[in-house]
Protein backbone atom coordinates (compact mmCIF):
# COMPACT_ATOMS: atom_id res chain seq x y z
CA UNK A 1 0.00 0.00 0.00
CA UNK A 2 1.19 3.46 -0.87
CA UNK A 3 1.90 5.74 2.00
CA UNK A 4 -0.57 8.58 2.15
CA UNK A 5 0.96 11.87 1.21
CA UNK A 6 1.17 13.91 4.39
CA UNK A 7 1.15 17.18 2.50
CA UNK A 8 -2.19 18.79 1.78
CA UNK A 9 -0.72 21.20 -0.71
CA UNK A 10 2.72 22.27 -1.84
CA UNK A 11 4.26 24.95 -4.00
CA UNK A 12 7.09 24.51 -6.46
CA UNK A 13 8.83 27.74 -7.45
CA UNK A 14 5.50 29.52 -7.19
CA UNK A 15 5.81 33.14 -8.29
CA UNK A 16 3.10 35.75 -8.59
CA UNK A 17 3.46 38.60 -11.05
CA UNK A 18 1.51 41.79 -11.60
CA UNK A 19 2.25 42.72 -15.19
CA UNK A 20 6.04 42.87 -15.27
CA UNK A 21 6.44 43.14 -11.49
CA UNK A 22 7.12 40.04 -9.45
CA UNK A 23 5.21 40.40 -6.19
CA UNK A 24 6.07 37.00 -4.78
CA UNK A 25 9.15 35.17 -5.90
CA UNK A 26 9.70 31.40 -6.10
CA UNK A 27 8.01 30.07 -3.01
CA UNK A 28 8.63 26.44 -2.08
CA UNK A 29 6.62 25.27 0.90
CA UNK A 30 4.93 22.02 1.78
CA UNK A 31 1.81 22.42 3.88
CA UNK A 32 1.21 19.47 6.17
CA UNK A 33 -2.18 17.92 6.38
CA UNK A 34 -4.26 18.72 9.46
CA UNK A 35 -1.75 21.17 10.79
CA UNK A 36 -1.82 24.92 11.11
CA UNK A 37 0.71 26.69 8.97
CA UNK A 38 1.25 30.38 9.59
CA UNK A 39 2.64 32.88 7.13
CA UNK A 40 4.27 35.84 8.84
CA UNK A 41 6.31 38.82 7.72
CA UNK A 42 6.27 42.61 7.60
CA UNK A 43 3.52 44.56 5.83
CA UNK A 44 3.67 44.50 2.06
CA UNK A 45 5.81 41.38 1.80
CA UNK A 46 3.18 39.51 -0.18
CA UNK A 47 1.66 37.30 2.52
CA UNK A 48 -1.93 37.87 1.43
CA UNK A 49 -0.97 37.71 -2.23
CA UNK A 50 0.59 34.32 -1.63
CA UNK A 51 -2.42 33.10 0.34
CA UNK A 52 -4.81 34.22 -2.38
CA UNK A 53 -2.82 32.24 -4.91
CA UNK A 54 -3.79 29.05 -3.09
CA UNK A 55 -7.46 29.29 -4.03
CA UNK A 56 -6.92 31.27 -7.22
CA UNK A 57 -8.51 34.45 -5.91
CA UNK A 58 -5.76 36.31 -7.75
CA UNK A 59 -7.52 35.33 -10.97
CA UNK A 60 -9.78 38.34 -10.40
CA UNK A 61 -6.90 40.81 -10.30
CA UNK A 62 -6.33 42.19 -13.80
CA UNK A 63 -2.78 41.62 -14.98
CA UNK A 64 -1.96 39.08 -12.32
CA UNK A 65 -0.42 35.80 -13.40
CA UNK A 66 1.25 32.93 -11.66
CA UNK A 67 4.24 30.83 -12.65
CA UNK A 68 5.54 27.67 -11.06
CA UNK A 69 3.32 24.98 -9.62
CA UNK A 70 0.75 24.67 -6.87
CA UNK A 71 0.29 20.97 -6.23
CA UNK A 72 -2.65 19.34 -4.52
CA UNK A 73 -2.51 15.53 -4.60
CA UNK A 74 -0.08 15.71 -7.47
CA UNK A 75 -2.32 17.97 -9.53
CA UNK A 76 -1.15 21.43 -10.50
CA UNK A 77 -4.01 23.79 -9.63
CA UNK A 78 -2.79 26.26 -12.23
CA UNK A 79 -2.78 23.87 -15.16
CA UNK A 80 -4.98 24.80 -18.06
CA UNK A 81 -7.72 22.24 -17.51
CA UNK A 82 -8.35 23.14 -13.87
CA UNK A 83 -11.53 25.09 -13.11
CA UNK A 84 -10.90 27.68 -10.38
CA UNK A 85 -14.48 27.20 -9.14
CA UNK A 86 -13.65 23.57 -8.35
CA UNK A 87 -10.43 24.66 -6.64
CA UNK A 88 -12.29 27.09 -4.37
CA UNK A 89 -14.81 24.45 -3.46
CA UNK A 90 -11.97 22.39 -1.98
CA UNK A 91 -9.93 25.23 -0.59
CA UNK A 92 -12.11 27.54 1.49
CA UNK A 93 -11.20 31.02 2.62
CA UNK A 94 -11.90 33.30 5.57
CA UNK A 95 -11.14 36.95 5.00
CA UNK A 96 -9.60 39.70 7.07
CA UNK A 97 -12.85 41.58 7.52
CA UNK A 98 -15.90 39.45 8.25
CA UNK A 99 -17.98 39.43 5.07
CA UNK A 100 -21.21 37.53 5.71
CA UNK A 101 -23.77 37.65 2.93
CA UNK A 102 -26.72 40.02 3.34
CA UNK A 103 -28.96 37.09 4.17
CA UNK A 104 -30.18 35.33 7.28
CA UNK A 105 -27.76 33.41 9.48
CA UNK A 106 -29.29 30.17 8.23
CA UNK A 107 -29.01 31.18 4.57
CA UNK A 108 -25.40 32.23 4.99
CA UNK A 109 -24.56 28.60 5.69
CA UNK A 110 -27.11 26.99 3.40
CA UNK A 111 -26.28 29.07 0.32
CA UNK A 112 -22.77 27.75 -0.21
CA UNK A 113 -23.85 24.17 0.41
CA UNK A 114 -26.74 24.53 -2.01
CA UNK A 115 -24.70 25.98 -4.88
CA UNK A 116 -22.24 23.16 -4.36
CA UNK A 117 -24.99 20.62 -4.90
CA UNK A 118 -25.62 19.58 -1.29
CA UNK A 119 -28.60 17.24 -1.23
CA UNK A 120 -28.73 16.08 2.40
CA UNK A 121 -30.56 17.47 5.40
CA UNK A 122 -29.91 21.20 5.34
CA UNK A 123 -31.06 21.85 8.91
CA UNK A 124 -28.57 19.30 10.16
CA UNK A 125 -25.77 20.74 8.08
CA UNK A 126 -26.47 24.24 9.35
CA UNK A 127 -26.46 23.05 12.94
CA UNK A 128 -23.29 21.00 12.55
CA UNK A 129 -21.44 23.81 10.81
CA UNK A 130 -22.45 26.35 13.42
CA UNK A 131 -21.47 23.95 16.17
CA UNK A 132 -18.08 23.32 14.58
CA UNK A 133 -17.57 27.07 14.46
CA UNK A 134 -18.57 27.39 18.15
CA UNK A 135 -21.44 29.67 17.24
CA UNK A 136 -24.49 27.42 17.56
CA UNK A 137 -25.38 28.20 21.17
CA UNK A 138 -25.32 31.94 20.50
CA UNK A 139 -27.48 31.91 17.37
CA UNK A 140 -29.69 28.83 17.57
CA UNK A 141 -32.74 30.90 18.49
CA UNK A 142 -32.29 33.49 15.78
CA UNK A 143 -31.31 31.59 12.68
CA UNK A 144 -33.68 33.60 10.52
CA UNK A 145 -32.28 36.94 11.61
CA UNK A 146 -29.89 38.90 9.45
CA UNK A 147 -26.25 37.96 9.76
CA UNK A 148 -25.54 41.67 10.18
CA UNK A 149 -27.19 41.64 13.58
CA UNK A 150 -24.21 39.64 14.89
CA UNK A 151 -21.09 41.13 16.45
CA UNK A 152 -17.85 41.22 14.47
CA UNK A 153 -16.45 38.16 16.18
CA UNK A 154 -19.67 36.25 15.67
CA UNK A 155 -19.76 37.29 12.02
CA UNK A 156 -16.24 35.97 11.56
CA UNK A 157 -17.20 32.65 13.14
CA UNK A 158 -20.23 32.59 10.84
CA UNK A 159 -17.87 33.00 7.89
CA UNK A 160 -15.84 30.08 9.24
CA UNK A 161 -19.04 28.06 9.65
CA UNK A 162 -20.15 28.69 6.08
CA UNK A 163 -16.72 27.63 4.87
CA UNK A 164 -16.91 24.43 6.91
CA UNK A 165 -20.35 23.74 5.46
CA UNK A 166 -18.91 23.11 2.01
CA UNK A 167 -16.43 20.66 3.58
CA UNK A 168 -13.21 21.88 2.01
CA UNK A 169 -9.92 20.11 2.58
CA UNK A 170 -7.97 23.26 3.26
CA UNK A 171 -9.07 26.50 4.93
CA UNK A 172 -7.17 29.69 4.15
CA UNK A 173 -7.37 32.46 6.70
CA UNK A 174 -6.26 35.96 5.83
CA UNK A 175 -5.59 37.70 9.16
CA UNK A 176 -8.96 36.44 10.41
CA UNK A 177 -8.68 38.12 13.79
CA UNK A 178 -7.10 41.44 12.90
CA UNK A 179 -10.45 43.25 12.92
CA UNK A 180 -11.54 41.66 16.20
CA UNK A 181 -11.10 42.42 19.89
CA UNK A 182 -8.77 40.25 22.01
CA UNK A 183 -11.53 38.02 23.38
CA UNK A 184 -12.96 37.30 19.95
CA UNK A 185 -9.43 36.72 18.73
CA UNK A 186 -8.87 34.13 21.44
CA UNK A 187 -12.08 32.35 20.47
CA UNK A 188 -10.98 32.19 16.84
CA UNK A 189 -7.63 30.75 17.90
CA UNK A 190 -9.30 28.12 20.08
CA UNK A 191 -11.56 27.32 17.17
CA UNK A 192 -8.58 26.81 14.89
CA UNK A 193 -7.18 24.20 17.27
CA UNK A 194 -10.52 22.38 17.10
CA UNK A 195 -10.68 22.67 13.31
CA UNK A 196 -7.25 21.26 12.65
CA UNK A 197 -8.50 17.84 13.68
CA UNK A 198 -10.33 17.75 10.37
CA UNK A 199 -8.88 20.49 8.22
CA UNK A 200 -5.58 21.82 7.02
CA UNK A 201 -5.29 25.48 7.92
CA UNK A 202 -3.09 28.08 6.31
CA UNK A 203 -3.19 31.40 8.10
CA UNK A 204 -1.66 34.77 7.33
CA UNK A 205 -1.03 36.90 10.37
CA UNK A 206 1.11 39.84 11.31
CA UNK A 207 0.54 39.11 14.94
CA UNK A 208 3.63 37.14 15.90
CA UNK A 209 2.31 35.97 19.23
CA UNK A 210 -0.65 34.54 17.39
CA UNK A 211 1.62 32.61 15.03
CA UNK A 212 3.71 31.37 17.94
CA UNK A 213 0.67 30.34 20.00
CA UNK A 214 -1.52 28.86 17.34
CA UNK A 215 0.54 27.38 14.53
CA UNK A 216 2.52 24.20 13.98
CA UNK A 217 4.58 25.48 11.06
CA UNK A 218 5.63 28.96 10.11
CA UNK A 219 6.71 30.47 6.83
CA UNK A 220 8.67 33.69 7.24
CA UNK A 221 8.34 36.13 4.34
CA UNK A 222 10.45 39.17 3.55
CA UNK A 223 10.91 41.47 0.58
CA UNK A 224 14.18 41.49 -1.32
CA UNK A 225 16.00 44.39 -2.97
CA UNK A 226 13.62 44.22 -5.99
CA UNK A 227 10.62 44.65 -3.68
CA UNK A 228 9.57 41.06 -4.42
CA UNK A 229 8.39 39.05 -1.47
CA UNK A 230 9.66 35.58 -0.80
CA UNK A 231 9.70 32.90 1.87
CA UNK A 232 13.10 33.16 3.52
CA UNK A 233 12.55 30.45 6.09
CA UNK A 234 10.01 27.69 6.54
CA UNK A 235 10.09 25.36 9.51
CA UNK A 236 8.32 24.17 12.61
CA UNK A 237 6.95 27.13 14.51
CA UNK A 238 8.93 26.47 17.68
CA UNK A 239 12.16 26.39 15.67
CA UNK A 240 11.32 29.63 13.90
CA UNK A 241 10.65 31.33 17.19
CA UNK A 242 13.47 29.81 19.27
CA UNK A 243 16.40 29.14 16.99
CA UNK A 244 15.78 30.47 13.50
CA UNK A 245 18.42 29.81 10.84
CA UNK A 246 18.12 33.18 9.17
CA UNK A 247 19.33 36.34 10.89
CA UNK A 248 16.43 38.34 9.40
CA UNK A 249 13.89 35.92 10.85
CA UNK A 250 15.52 36.24 14.24
CA UNK A 251 15.45 40.02 14.03
CA UNK A 252 11.81 39.97 13.03
CA UNK A 253 10.48 37.51 15.59
CA UNK A 254 12.38 39.15 18.40
CA UNK A 255 10.95 42.50 17.41
CA UNK A 256 14.25 44.07 16.40
CA UNK A 257 12.90 44.68 12.94
CA UNK A 258 9.87 46.39 11.41
Amino acid sequence: MLMENTYAIETKDLSIHYGGFTAVNEVNIKVERRKITAVIGPSGCGKSTLLRAFNRMNDFVPGCHVSGELLMQGQNLYSRNVDPVEVRRRIGMVFQKPNPFPKSIYENIAWGARINGFKGNMNELVEQSLQSAALWDEVKDKLQESAYALSGGQQQRLCIARTIAIQPEIILMDEPASALDPISTLRIEELMQELKKNYTILIVTHNMQQAARASDFTAMMMIDENRSGGVIEFDETKKIFTRPMDKRTEDYVTGRFG
Binding site: M57, R88, R89, G112, C159, T163
Partner: peptide, 20 residues
Protein backbone atom coordinates in the same frame (compact mmCIF):
# COMPACT_ATOMS: atom_id res chain seq x y z
CA UNK B 1 -15.62 41.69 -0.23
CA UNK B 2 -19.11 40.23 -0.79
CA UNK B 3 -18.19 39.01 -4.25
CA UNK B 4 -14.92 37.57 -2.95
CA UNK B 5 -16.81 35.81 -0.17
CA UNK B 6 -19.09 34.20 -2.72
CA UNK B 7 -16.29 33.20 -5.08
CA UNK B 8 -14.36 31.72 -2.16
CA UNK B 9 -17.33 29.45 -1.52
CA UNK B 10 -16.94 27.95 -4.98
CA UNK B 11 -19.66 30.08 -6.55
CA UNK B 12 -19.64 30.68 -10.28
CA UNK B 13 -19.83 34.15 -11.72
CA UNK B 14 -23.53 33.75 -12.46
CA UNK B 15 -24.35 32.50 -8.96
CA UNK B 16 -22.39 35.36 -7.44
CA UNK B 17 -23.99 38.02 -9.65
CA UNK B 18 -27.57 36.85 -9.38
CA UNK B 19 -27.74 35.44 -5.85
CA UNK B 20 -25.36 37.68 -3.90
Amino acid sequence: SLREGAYAMGATKLETSVQI
